[in-house]
Write a protein that binds this DNA or RNA. Sequence first.
RNA 1: GCCGAGGUGGCGGAAUGGCUUACGCGGCGGUCUCAAAAACCGUUGAGGGUAACCUCAUGAGGGUUCAACUCCCUCCCUCGGCACCA
Length: 800
Amino acid sequence: MSYPFKEIEEKWQKKWQEDKLFAAVAQKDKPKYYLLEMFPYPSGKIHMGHVRNYTIGDVVARFKKMQNFNVLHPMGFDAFGQPAENAAIKNKTQPDIWTHKCIDWMRQELKRMGFSYDWAREVSTSEDNYYKWNQWIFLKMYERGLAYRKKSAVNWCPSCETTLANEEVVAGGCWRCSAGVEQKDLEQWFLKITEYKERLLEDLAQLKEWPERVLSMQANWLGRSQGVEIYFRLKDNHKVIPVFTTRVDTIFGATYIVLAPEHPLVKEIIQGKTREKEVLRFIQKVSKESKEVRTASDVKKEGVFTGAWAINPVNNEEVPIWVADYVLMEYGTGAIMAVPAHDQRDFLFAREHGLPMRVVIKSPGHQVTTSPEELTEAYEGDGIQVNSGQFDGLPNQEAKIKIAAWMEQQGIGKIQTHWRLRDWLISRQRYWGTPIPIIYCPKCGIVPVPYADLPVELPKDAPFTGKGGSPLGKVKEFAEVKCPKCKGPGRRETDTMATFFDSSWYFLRFSSPQANAEPFERKEVKYWMPVDQYIGGIEHAILHLLYSRFFTKFFKDLTMIDFSEPFSRLLTQGMVLKDGQVMSKSRGNIVDPDAIIKKYGADTLRLFILFAAPPETELEWEERGIAGAFKFLNRLWRIQKNLKTKADPSLVKVMHKSIKKVTEDIESFKFNTAIASIMEFVNAVYQQGADKEVFSNLIILLSPIAPHISEELWQIIGNKESVSLAHWPKYDPQMLIEETVTLVIQVNGRLRSKIDVPIDISEDKLKELVLLDAKLKPWLENKPLKNFILIPNKLINLVV
RNA sequence: GCCGAGGUGGCGGAAUGGCUUACGCGGCGGUCUCAAAAACCGUUGAGGGUAACCUCAUGAGGGUUCAACUCCCUCCCUCGGCACCA
């Protein structure tokens, strides 16, 4: 007979809700703790990833509450987005209706897990009282020149029929559907996230409690590289070709320069020259190649000589100008100086086309030759400058700084920083998103919708065909509007915002979900923010987390908030795998949390998912493991019958040890070992029988992890209030002190014997005892004792 | 190539200078039962030995130390991010 989990769980979920046990109210007399998990997209069903994410969060929220923190633990739904639109097309319904249905269903499922959310603060981004503020924020950005419209080549997903941000392109494919991303020339709205690039990079240093890999991924994405822009003059006229390099120390070895085929100067320098046709043909050929083909690293570098020459400004040497496919217009200046002796790509290209090389850095240790003929590959390491004029003999790292300074002084170069980050494209040619609050007027141009007219409501009756442009364009009443300025006929922007816009500030909204003068109440935000602990998947390491950091800095610039980072501490939980693979519909290896709850209950599911692996690593789903967790809870259920009036002192000791371990482990997110310690505690209780005090503490320790069974047992032993209102126990350090201790005895570092002695026994006494130890005799015989090492209360090592 | 994380029993994982393998899963043996399940008890790194016990083992190799999974050096492998990035 297993314990009646179904009855227990339903009963307490209902009771917690009735009592509004987890409602958050600002309270001055308590320290606040804002715990947030990344809110879900309401796809209709929670999956194991959600269960893991939210269980981790719930343990911490409940734990902090019992430690007398004033806890904010909200939940909401990232409700705009393509799946709703696709489902609506498929089922011939409205995305609005479909989304609401999904939200209702998911809310039910989350409640069945027993999570301690303050449901009164629930937020849904597709409600007009939420997306109104997206529009408000957009207008604020527009006013400050941070939202702007521009025509450029943008990422296009042919399957989703919409544009994508750079951050949404993963390995050349759409982040959502993996279809190959194409380039399209379109006029679109961008957010100037690049204006914040320095701060986004610098402030990473503040994020001491973020995982190293997220910090490194963000830094990679921002992609700062420091170098020098060098000005090469053309030989024939005074025009200048700027090139960017991070290796200015190799400038004396630059023996040719290469322009990207798209470089605007190419056509000019070949005009009327003998090579014009050949170069044009080459450019034509490259333009037909896709970016993927062009950037594949194993493809041979191709290029042609333009017939033109430039002057290397450091030594006035004439160098030929080439055009090659391995130089990209979108990075740096679209032109490079080639140093074949010290850059492998340049080396291969130079060998292929018979271009000259010059060694300018010599590695003293490695005997690198200074004669280019003997080179078999480029030397890219550090060394001493040679063939570098007045810089000869300097270590190259030092020369780098000196040459850069000297070039600036001479006016032939400029120290510069290049970034990989590009502005954020937010226009989407889709229906189910926030309308961009802009009107185009033939007379006045781009006119922002006045604040008073917000929200620009999403019409409910847009036609869904699933193809051919944004559905909003087909809704006359929506698209055709008067210009707010001149009252003449105008046309509304019919694109919607990327949904990452919505999630870039929702954490602020939770502080005051009903705010109606601004996106959030400043007073509430001041109390609750920043988020003390944020928990979510690693897949958002760049996307959502970068955007949220950007928005936070923007609000700070608006003086609406006084902090610049939204999330003090971040935990990225690992994925849940089945048979070593991510659970997915297409693989058919999904384990439905609902089925597990039915079979074993929410407490068992919570317990297993925390116990099976540390939160940051991947978790392999094990049906047998979950049965083990269930077994444990049943065991716990049974020991309530074994209570006695006075617990054995040795058990009280176990209790204090457990309190210490569980407290420390939850604080450092080691839930698996916290549970292991509780299991040991339960095993001890099982054997010895607990009294009420010991049992009470055991229940409290388990309650954040398995709240329902804990609540039930808590009431059974005679408590009236919820266990979540109990105080987290403190351990007594006195109780951890043992009277005797088992010392390990080593001879030459190898375990040979053990000895039980009183704690803090004197060294002399110990020595005496040890030398009497019969087990040690064979190891010590006829060998003089060289050293006697005593680590108090731990170990003795005899060196002979 | 650069950056980051990691490599420990049959499996998930403990241990951050001091008894390697906590806790759990699985396996094996037993108790209860007509039987099974559940529950309970015992056992379980490898090799050797009747046994006491010995030897070996934390990706590989070296080093520091009385003592190394842990610190240092070299290398290998796995996973993730960035990348013809100048």
